[in-house]
């Protein structure tokens, strides 16, 4: 019941997002939509995905969109009206996607093909070979260790690049800009 109630909330939020013209309200509702999705992921046992959704969707994305609103305006321009060809394309693609999900195995079905391929082997060998009680940790930190190291390197490089780009210039007492945080030139 919690599942369907949360889904209903998400549909209501999405329709309201389309309907509202005050962009501040849209940002607030999208944050609430993300938090709702995160709770739904928790209910569906995908706790790690829920963490990401809550931190990125409800936390960072809301703040970034608020920053955008601060730089622009908070009211959408007049409604240009419905574009029927575009609506038709969207409806057809959506119907095709929903048709595609009809073939999928039931949610959480242990006999689904994806759970029969390599997963049993990892579950069986993981604790013995790596000595870790958690299967996800054994795959991420041991079997895919180099891959995870590469991911961390990418994230670190991205953070360093962002800091170099948007590091604020630092003013000295006499008003002359001596240097920025990132380098020589302001």
């Amino acid at each position: 019941m919690i599942f369907y109630a949360l889904l209903t909330f998400m549909v209501v939020s999405a329709l309201a997002l389309l309907w509202l013209r005050n962009l501040f309200a849209v940002v607030m509702l999208s944050g609430s939509f993300s938090l709702n999705a995160a709770v739904l992921y928790v209910v569906m046992d995908a706790v790690d995905v829920a963490f990401t959704e809550a931190a990125v969707g409800a936390g960072i994305a809301t703040v970034l969109m608020l920053g955008t609103l601060a730089l622009t305006t908070s009211h959408e321009k007049a409604d240009p009206g419905v574009s029927w060809p575009h609506l038709a394309v969207v409806v057809v693609v959506g119907a095709a996607l929903i048709y595609g999900t009809l073939d999928m195995p039931r949610y959480g079905d242990p006999m689904a093909p994806i759970h029969q391929h390599v997963a049993p082997e990892y579950i069986e060998r993981g604790p013995k070979q790596t000595g870790m009680p958690n299967v996800v940790t054994s795959i991420l930190a041991s079997y895919r260790g180099y891959d995870t190291l590469g991911e961390v390197t990418v994230v670190f490089t991205a953070a360093a690049g962002v800091l170099a780009l948007i590091g604020r210039r630092r003013k000295k007492k006499n008003g002359v800009i001596k240097r920025t945080r990132s380098g020589e030139r302001p």
Binding site: M28, F51, A55, A58, G59, L66
Partner: peptide, 13 residues
């Protein structure tokens, strides 16, 4: 953790 994120978001808003 969600309570913390909620708090930070509200502060930002």
């Amino acid at each position: 953790v969600y309570a913390l994120i909620n708090f930070v978001a509200t502060i930002a808003v």
